[in-house]
């Protein structure tokens, strides 16, 4: 019955929305607050890797596109009710999300990292430089996980309420660590800097530029890089389950953008590193 209710609401929202929309331009949802992937400039326009990249993809598809900013917690709902047509928000491909969304082919591959205050207890975390792949059977994997588990026991780790990083902490690291949830990354960063939380687990592509800011000099990146499982296997565009034609179009454009080196140029411009998916 509840399913029917959701469906009715979705149809209602779709109907209301359909009337307000004009032409066949695609509406792309993004957060507009996740630099350098996407962020909002002082004049209100969106900038970053994804606005540039999606402009390139839409030009290849010869389709007019419009990017709108919204909070992540409402974005999947907006996609399902037809307010937007696809999501370009550094969405990691995770099993949880694959159950409700259709992912395109990955267009970037970044990993999770731990950041903490310089000089804090966690700043001497072991395995810095190593990579912990949750999916890959590896004898070293258990050792690294054990050391991480011991180091994080009794600590408070803040994450954005995205469903990716907290699942790794609660499922892989276990009940020893306390997870604090934040609506936005800015709020989480404030609490990391004022010492309310001991560390954060966040994407390297977000932390690296943060370390270069004035406040960010107080922070260090420590411990192993984390990938796989609920942390995801790269970033992809997210579509409604039924929109297979649209997804296929974008997959072709992603391939073309990769083949002629356009996306590679954008990686270097925005991330200062190669974020190509394997």
């Amino acid at each position: 019955m509840i399913r029917a209710g959701v469906l009715a609401l979705a149809l209602l929202a779709g109907a209301c929305h359909g009337a307000a929309r004009s032409g066949d331009d695609l509406v792309i949802g993004t957060e507009g607050a996740y630099p350098p992937w996407n962020f909002t400039r002082a004049d209100g326009t969106l900038a970053g890797f994804e606005p540039d990249y999606l402009r390139d993809l839409c030009a290849r598809l010869h389709r007019p596109c419009r990017m709108v900013a919204m909070d992540w917690d409402g974005m999947i709902g907006a996609l399902q009710t037809g307010k937007i047509d696809l999501i370009a928000d550094a969405v990691q491909i995770t099993p949880d999300r694959a159950a409700v969304l259709a992912f395109g082919r990955p267009y970037a591959m970044t990993t999770g990292v731990i950041a903490t205050l310089r000089g804090s207890a966690l700043s001497r975390l072991a395995d810095t430089g190593a990579t912990l792949d949750v999916d890959r059977p590896d004898p070293l994997r258990e050792d690294i996980t054990d050391r991480l588990r011991k180091a994080l026991a009794g600590k408070v780790v803040g994450v954005e309420l995205s469903g990716a990083f907290d699942a790794f902490l609660t499922q892989t690291i276990g009940p020893g660590v306390t997870v604090r949830y934040y609506r936005t990354m800015g709020e989480r960063d404030l609490d990391l800097l004022n010492g309310r939380i001991d560390a954060t687990l966040e994407d390297e592509s977000y932390i690296r530029p943060l370390l270069a800011t004035r406040d960010g000099t107080a922070l260090v990146m420590v411990g192993p890089r984390l990938v796989g499982g609920s942390l995801g296997r790269g970033e992809a565009l997210a579509f409604r389950k039924g929109d297979t034609a649209l997804r296929a179009d974008f997959d072709r454009a992603i391939g073309a953008s990769r083949a002629d080196g356009t996306v590679h140029r954008l990686y270097l411009q925005w991330f200062r590193m190669d974020a190509s998916p394997q």
Partner: peptide, 13 residues
Amino acid sequence: AQTLIAHSYRTLE
């Protein structure tokens, strides 16, 4: 409730 929605995406329920 919000953390549960972040995993299930079932806002209404």
